[in-house]
Amino acid sequence: MNGLLPVAGLSLAAAAIVMTLTAYTARRTGRVSVVDTAWGIALLAVALVCAVLAGTWQSWLLVVLVGFWAGRLSSHIFTRSRGHGEDPRYEKLLGGSLDEVGMGVAVRKVFLVQGAAVWLVSLPLQGAAVAGPDRGWVVWVGVAVWVLGVVFETVGDAQLKAYKADPDRGPVMDRGLWSWTRHPNYFGDACVWWGIWLAGGVASGWVPGLVTVLSPVAMTVWLVWITGARLLEQTMMQRPGYPEYAARTSMFVPLPPKG
């Protein structure tokens, strides 16, 4: 068993180092949105710190789970954003471009917040490093939930890419997983972190499970109501056909389409 303070402190330090390097990259490129690519990398850095401290098979398995998720997410975001300018969401958050508001505002409103969010979401990794594996079978239940999430993310992104490449596509993507949920990638992301909570927090005991449940709850709240689905819906509802699609399709949890 490792001490709580060293694990928590070094995890916070890992997140801070990644966000500092990301802020430097943002200043060089003039784009705060590079933080989206760094999000997964920061969580992987914390997972590695926790595994080195713990040295258990559970923590190293969590490195594999977080690493696969982070690699897929970061490469997807990097490829999608390459060659584009600043994300309008960040310009709205900052109150202007990075050149207009300065790095001080960006650090305060974006990088400090994102660093704290990384630390919060990584609580199951820290719980596993502190307590160690207690219920091995729960680890594999968590892996199963994680696999479900990765499938939804990967298949949903692939279906969206195929839709965009189809010259005969309709005005709204409503094929495959997208006919059951309007945001299969966000749903998959939530499942990934509920799975990691099971494999890291709950599998280490009920107390670590209760303490670290803030991680998947926070991730789900962000994905649904703050930075994810609800925010995107404000723009998508302006598209022809989208209100009708929304009326028959679940926003988040996959359900059979209505009608």
Rank of each mutant, 00 (worst) to 15 (best):
V7T: 04
G9W: 08
A13D: 01
A13R: 02
A13N: 01
A14P: 00
I17M: 01
I17R: 05
V18N: 02
M19Y: 08
L21S: 03
A23P: 03
R28E: 15
T29V: 03
R31M: 13
R31S: 09
S33F: 02
V34Q: 12
V34T: 09
T37C: 13
W39R: 06
W39F: 10
G40K: 00
A42N: 07
V46T: 10
A47N: 04
V49M: 00
L53S: 07
L53N: 05
A54P: 11
V64P: 05
V66Y: 08
G71N: 07
R72N: 10
R72V: 05
H76T: 13
I77A: 04
T79A: 14
R80A: 05
S81N: 15
R82H: 07
R82P: 08
R82Y: 03
G83Q: 00
P88I: 00
E91T: 07
E91P: 09
E91F: 14
E91L: 14
E91R: 11
E91M: 13
K92W: 14
S97H: 12
S97I: 14
V101P: 05
V101H: 11
V105M: 10
K109M: 06
K109D: 09
F111I: 01
F111K: 02
L112Y: 15
V113L: 05
V113D: 02
G115H: 02
A116E: 13
A117W: 14
L120G: 04
L120H: 08
S122E: 13
P124E: 02
G127C: 10
A129S: 06
G132A: 10
P133F: 05
D134F: 08
W137Q: 11
W140F: 09
G142I: 14
L148W: 09
F152Y: 15
E153K: 01
T154S: 14
T154I: 11
T154F: 15
V155C: 05
G156T: 03
D157A: 05
D157M: 12
A158R: 15
A158N: 08
Q159I: 06
A162R: 14
A162Q: 15
K164W: 14
K164R: 12
G170T: 14
P171L: 04
P171A: 11
P171S: 13
V172N: 04
V172R: 00
G176F: 00
L177F: 13
W180R: 11
P184R: 09
F187S: 09
G188F: 02
A190K: 05
C191E: 10
V192H: 12
V192I: 13
L198Q: 00
G200M: 04
G201Q: 07
V207D: 08
L210D: 06
P216F: 02
V221C: 11
V221P: 14
W222V: 15
W225G: 06
W225C: 06
A229H: 07
L232M: 07
T235V: 11
Q238I: 12
P240Q: 07
Y242Q: 01
E244P: 03
E244V: 04
A247H: 00
A247D: 05
T249M: 05
M251A: 07
F252H: 07
F252N: 10
P257T: 15
K258P: 13
G259L: 12
